[in-house]
């Protein structure tokens, strides 16, 4: 089964997103690289996202796109990145989610991916 591991955290907290050139940043990047190596070919996709201060929200009203500056909803914790993983079952997906470095400072939501085969 495919699972989306959605990585949430407070993007304004230094613990969740440390500034580049800090030792904390290096530790986090190292953690993600180790995760990538360990999960290997189970990772079907995975990206880190920019902070929500550069996001744009789009909705279509009467056939026309209406854009607003900022995220869809103001929340304390934001989506900061994701993986799509191929796993045997939910237990395996949960085990991988627990290995994501920022799972310790934020949260990881495990969502099964719909299959239309």
């Amino acid at each position: 089964m495919k699972y989306a591991l959605l990585i949430y955290g407070d993007e304004n907290s230094a613990a969740v997103s440390p500034a580049p050139d800090t030792p904390e940043f290096a530790t986090m990047i190292g953690g993600y690289m180790a995760f990538g190596e360990q999960a290997g070919s189970k990772i079907l996709a995975g990206e880190a996202l920019h902070d929500t201060d550069v996001s744009t929200t789009v909705t279509v009203v009467d056939g026309a796109a209406v854009t607003t500056d900022g995220p869809f909803a103001e929340t304390k914790e934001q989506l900061g990145g994701f993986y799509i993983l191929e796993c045997e079952d939910l237990d395996e997906a949960i085990a991988w989610a627990a290995k994501i470095p920022t799972a310790a400072t934020g949260r990881v939501e495990v969502r099964p991916v719909q299959s239309y085969e």
Partner: peptide
Amino acid sequence: RSAGVPFK
């Protein structure tokens, strides 16, 4: 069913 909760 949808989340693949295992019976093991």
